[in-house]
């Protein structure tokens, strides 16, 4: 299972890519998409929404069930992946690439330190 080392992770199975300019890209991990199965709909957050750590920022629906998305870091939504409106299956086929969900401008870049690194996330998935 792919867990890229350049990403940060949350215990609720989101990944965070630090762009180095105070913004991040967020998606769900390979592990999460496998657990969900075939994704058929993604409810995206609103651009400009202000999110606190742990806020629900969207919903992913698979054939079987709905799963809430929790934002692992505080910030303001600056972009969402509107391609998922027509091709929600990108979350399954390319979770770390074309299946990204939203971009945030962080309130505090030091919050990145709170996230898990790839090794810590790998152990979490294995338990």
């Amino acid at each position: 299972m792919s867990i890229p080392s350049e990403l940060k992770y949350s215990a609720s199975h989101e990944w965070v890519l630090d762009k180095g300019d105070g913004t991040v890209i967020i998606g769900i991990t390979e592990f999460a998409q496998q657990q969900l199965g075939d994704v058929v709909f993604v409810e995206l957050p609103q651009v400009d929404a202000k999110l606190c750590n742990g806020d629900e920022f969207g919903v992913i629906e698979s054939v079987k069930a709905a799963a809430d998305l929790f934002v692992p870091i505080a910030g303001v939504v600056i972009d969402v992946n509107t391609q998922l409106e027509d091709e929600p299956e990108l979350v399954n086929t390319d979770p770390y690439g074309k299946g990204w969900i939203c971009k945030l401008r962080l309130n505090d870049i030091d919050d990145l330190q709170q996230l898990l690194d790839a090794d810590a996330y790998t152990s979490l998935c294995e338990t």
Partner: peptide, 8 residues
């Protein structure tokens, strides 16, 4: 519930 092929 499902096999590796997936529900869809």
């Amino acid at each position: 519930i499902q096999y590796p092929l997936g529900i869809k």
